[in-house]
Design a protein around this nucleic acid. Structure first.
Length: 608
RNA sequence: GCCGAUGUAGCUCAAUCGGUAGAGCAACUGAUUUGUAAUCAGUAGGUUGUCGGUUCGAUUCCGGCCAUCGGCUCCA
C-alpha cells in the first residue's frame, strides 16, 4: 500500500504537463489493449500523444463505429480496474522483430526496422498486451481515471497517401476530473462559436451547393463586416506609405510562365481561354505587382515602393479540405509587395512587424512569431539566403522580439516570419506572414537605377497582415463568439419601440443615430418589447435603444447594452457621443476572454 | 483526392416492418398595444441532395454522382 504522501506526490507529478503526457501515452496503450481484446485481428500501428490527448492507429477489417467506441471505452475501464502493472523490458532490434512477427504485428516490425542501429529497443507490457514504445509510462493501468474517446477517422500509415488507410481513434485523458471537464467544455464552446454556425445564425454569409464548394456568398451583414475590415485596412496602409494597385482577375499564361506558377503551381490554378489564348485565374497577386513595378524605369530614389492590394485570388483546393471560411477556393488577401534596397530590408521588415503589432492590438489578439529557415528543396544562392535570413533575424533581435525557429520550414524561394495569433479559446491561427523572395525579382528581371548609375535588382518582400479576409473573419467570429466590438458590429444599434404610439419618435431617434454615423436599425414590428430585446440579444447587436411613452415625452431614450444590460434613461445626444467614442477607440468587450485552454490548431494559408 | 458519417420546409429536428411526410421556430394574415431575453389564433410552405436500380409501391433497400461534417493527405 502506498502511503498518502506518496500518492500525493504522484498526483502532483501527474498534473504537470510531463505527467499528463505520460498519462495520455498510457491511455493510448490501454485503448490499444482494449481494441486488441475486442477485435483480436486488429493490427497495431502507432499511438502517440498529441496536445490535449492521444490517438492510436489500427489496421482493422472494418472501420470502427460509434458503438464500437462505447464498447472500447467500457473495456478500457475494465483494464483500468484490472490494475495491470506496466512493465518495461528491453531487447535487441533483431529479437524485437522476431517477437512482433510472432505476434503478427507487421507495422511494429516496420517501425523496428528503422531502429536497427539502436542496441536495444524498449517494450512496455500490461497483462497480455505488449507494445513497442520509448516510454515512459504510468506504473499501473489503475492510475488512469478521467479519459474519453472522442472520434474515429481514417489516417494514412505514416501519413503518406500512397500507404494503406488505417483507422484512428482520438481520445483525451486527464489527471484530474476538472481537467477533463474543462477540456470537454472547451470543445463544446468551440462548437458553439463555430463560425459556420454563427455565420448562419447572424446571417453573415453562406456557402451554397449550387454556387459551388469553397465559394462564399456574403450576405448584407457579412459584407458590412468585410467593408469595415477593408476600410480599416485601406486607412492603415495609407498611413504607412503603401500605394494602392489593382491587378486583373485573369492574366495570360505567359505571365504565369515567367513567375513560375505555371510549373510549380499549375494544379492549384484555374484556366480559361480567350480567342485561342490561355489565361490563368490568379491564385496570387504578386505577378501583377511585378508587372506594375516593371512598367517604367525605377530609381533608387523611388524605393522602398510598397504596393498594396485587397487582392481576390482563386485556388483549386481539394474537396475534402474545404472548411467554412477557413479553407476556401476564392478569397481576398490584404497583400502587399515591398520593393527595396538591400540596406532598407531590415527597416522594412521592422515596419511590417510593427504594423502587425498595431493591428493585432486593435483586435485584442496575442501572437507569437516564428522564423522559418531554408528548406532542403530550395532555390537561390547561399549568400542570398544568409542575407535574407539575417535581415529577418536582425529585425526580430533589434526589436527584442521573442520568436521560435522552424528549421527548414521556409518557402522554397526565401525565409519567412509567420505570425500565429491566439484566440479566446487558446487556439492558434496563422494570419500574417512576411516572406523574403529573390526569385520573382529575378524572373521578372526587375531593376532600378542605383546611385552609381548602374542597374540593380531590388529586394522584395511579400507580406500579408490579416492574411485572407475570409479566414480572418472566421477567426474574429469565433474569437468574439459573434459578439463583435461595436466598431466591427454590422448592426451597431437597434431602436425598439414599445407600442405603435412611439413609432414616429422611434423613427426620428433612428435617423439621429444613423446621421451620426452609427449603423442603426428600427425594429418596428408589432411585437412585445421583450421579444424584440431577445431577438437583438441573439443577433448580438451591441446596443438596444428602447423608446416608450416616458422616453417620448422627455425626448430621451433608454439604452440597453448587449454586454452590460439596462443602462437607464439617457439623453440622445450624449448616448450618441458615448457610442461614437467607443467606436472611435475600437473598444473590445471585456468578456471576450472567457475560456482558455491549450488547444492548438494551426491552419495555414499560402500567400503570394 | 482518401477513410467514415450525414443529407427531410428558410432554421432545428421527427416519421414503426417499404404503403407518396410531421412538429417547433422563422415567414405571411388577423387579433393584441405591451417597460428590459419568446402574446394568442390562423394560413402557407416539401419532386425527402441528385441520377439510376430493385419493387405493385422507395424518405426508407442497393449503386453512381454532388455537397456537408469528423479526420488524413495537401497547403509557394
Amino acid at each position: 500500500m502506498e502511503n498518502t504522501t506518496e500518492k500525493e506526490k504522484i498526483r502532483i507529478l501527474l498534473e504537470s504537463p510531463e505527467g499528463e503526457e505520460i498519462l495520455r501515452h498510457t491511455s493510448a496503450h490501454v485503448m490499444a489493449q482494449a481494441v486488441k481484446e475486442l477485435f483480436p485481428e486488429t493490427r497495431l500501428a502507432i499511438g502517440p500523444t498529441i496536445e490535449n490527448g492521444f490517438y492510436y492507429d489500427f489496421d482493422t477489417a472494418r472501420p470502427f463505429t460509434p458503438e464500437d467506441l462505447d464498447k472500447i471505452t467500457e473495456r478500457m475501464q475494465e483494464i483500468v480496474r484490472r490494475a495491470y502493472p506496466v512493465v518495461r523490458t528491453e531487447m535487441s532490434p533483431d529479437e524485437a522483430i522476431v517477437f512482433f512477427e510472432q505476434r503478427h504485428e507487421p507495422y511494429k516490425v516496420e517501425l523496428i526496422r528503422d531502429l536497427m542501429e539502436e542496441s536495444m529497443v524498449s517494450l512496455y507490457a500490461q497483462g497480455d498486451f505488449v507494445d513497442l514504445c520509448r516510454g515512459p509510462h504510468l506504473p499501473n493501468t489503475s492510475m488512469l481515471k478521467h479519459f474519453k474517446l472522442l472520434n474515429v477517422a481514417g489516417a494514412y500509415w505514416r501519413g503518406d497517401e500512397r500507404n494503406p488507410m488505417l483507422q484512428r481513434i482520438y481520445g483525451t485523458s486527464f489527471a484530474r476530473k476538472e481537467g477533463l471537464q474543462n477540456h470537454l467544455k472547451m470543445l463544446e464552446e468551440a462548437k458553439k462559436r463555430d463560425h459556420r454556425k454563427l455565420g448562419r445564425e447572424l446571417d453573415l454569409f453562406e456557402i451554397n451547393e449550387t454556387v459551388g464548394g469553397g465559394l462564399i456568398l456574403y450576405h448584407p451583414k457579412g459584407a458590412m463586416l468585410r467593408w469595415i475590415l477593408e476600410d480599416f485596412e485601406k486607412a492603415e496602409h495609407l498611413k504607412r506609405g503603401y500605394l494602392p494597385v489593382i491587378g486583373p482577375q485573369i492574366l495570360k499564361s505567359d505571365v504565369w510562365r515567367i513567375s513560375g506558377h505555371y510549373d510549380y503551381y499549375k494544379e492549384n490554378m484555374y484556366f480559361t481561354e480567350i480567342e485561342g489564348k490561355e489565361y490563368g485565374i490568379k491564385p496570387m497577386n504578386c505577378p501583377a505587382h511585378m508587372m506594375i513595378f516593371q512598367s517604367k524605369t525605377r530609381s533608387y530614389r523611388d524605393l522602398p515602393l510598397r504596393f498594396f492590394e485587397l487582392g481576390t485570388v482563386h485556388r483549386h483546393e481539394k474537396t475534402g479540405v474545404l472548411h467554412g471560411l477557413l479553407r476556401v477556393r476564392g478569397f481576398t488577401q490584404d497583400d502587399a509587395h515591398i520593393f527595396c534596397l538591400p540596406e532598407q530590408l531590415t527597416g522594412e521588415i521592422i515596419g511590417v512587424i510593427d504594423f502587425v503589432r498595431d493591428v493585432m492590438k486593435v483586435f485584442g489578439f496575442e501572437y507569437t512569431l516564428e522564423l522559418s529557415t531554408r528548406p532542403e528543396k530550395s532555390i537561390g544562392s547561399d549568400e542570398d539566403w544568409d542575407r535574407a535570413t539575417l535581415a529577418l533575424t536582425s529585425a526580430l533581435e533589434e526589436h527584442r522580439l521573442a520568436y521560435t525557429i522552424n528549421e527548414g520550414d521556409g518557402a522554397f524561394y526565401g525565409p519567412k516570419v509567420d505570425v500565429k495569433i491566439k484566440d479566446a479559446l487558446g487556439r492558434s491561427w496563422q494570419c500574417a506572414t512576411i516572406q523574403c523572395d529573390f526569385t520573382l525579382p529575378e524572373r521578372f528581371k526587375l531593376r532600378y537605377a542605383g546611385q552609381d548609375g548602374s542597374e540593380h535588382r531590388p529586394i522584395m518582400l511579400h507580406r500579408v497582415i490579416l492574411g485572407s479576409l475570409e479566414r480572418f473573419m472566421a477567426v474574429l467570429i469565433e474569437h468574439f463568439a459573434g459578439k463583435f466590438p461595436v466598431w466591427l458590429a454590422p448592426v451597431q444599434a437597434v431602436v425598439i419601440n414599445i407600442t405603435d404610439k412611439q413609432l414616429s419618435y422611434a423613427a426620428e431617434v433612428k435617423e439621429k443615430f444613423v446621421k451620426a454615423g452609427i449603423r442603426t436599425d428600427l425594429d418596428a414590428r408589432n411585437e412585445k418589447m421583450g421579444y424584440k430585446i431577445r431577438e437583438a440579444q441573439i443577433q448580438k447587436i451591441p446596443y438596444m435603444i428602447i423608446v416608450g411613452d416616458r422616453e417620448m415625452e422627455s425626448l430621451k431614450i433608454s439604452l440597453r447594452s448587449r454586454d452590460r444590460g439596462d443602462l437607464g434613461t439617457l439623453n440622445i445626444e450624449s448616448s450618441i457621443q458615448d457610442i461614437l467614442k467607443e467606436i472611435e477607440e475600437k473598444r473590445i468587450p471585456e468578456d471576450t476572454m472567457e475560456i482558455k485552454d491549450q488547444g492548438t490548431k494551426i491552419k495555414k494559408q499560402k500567400i503570394g
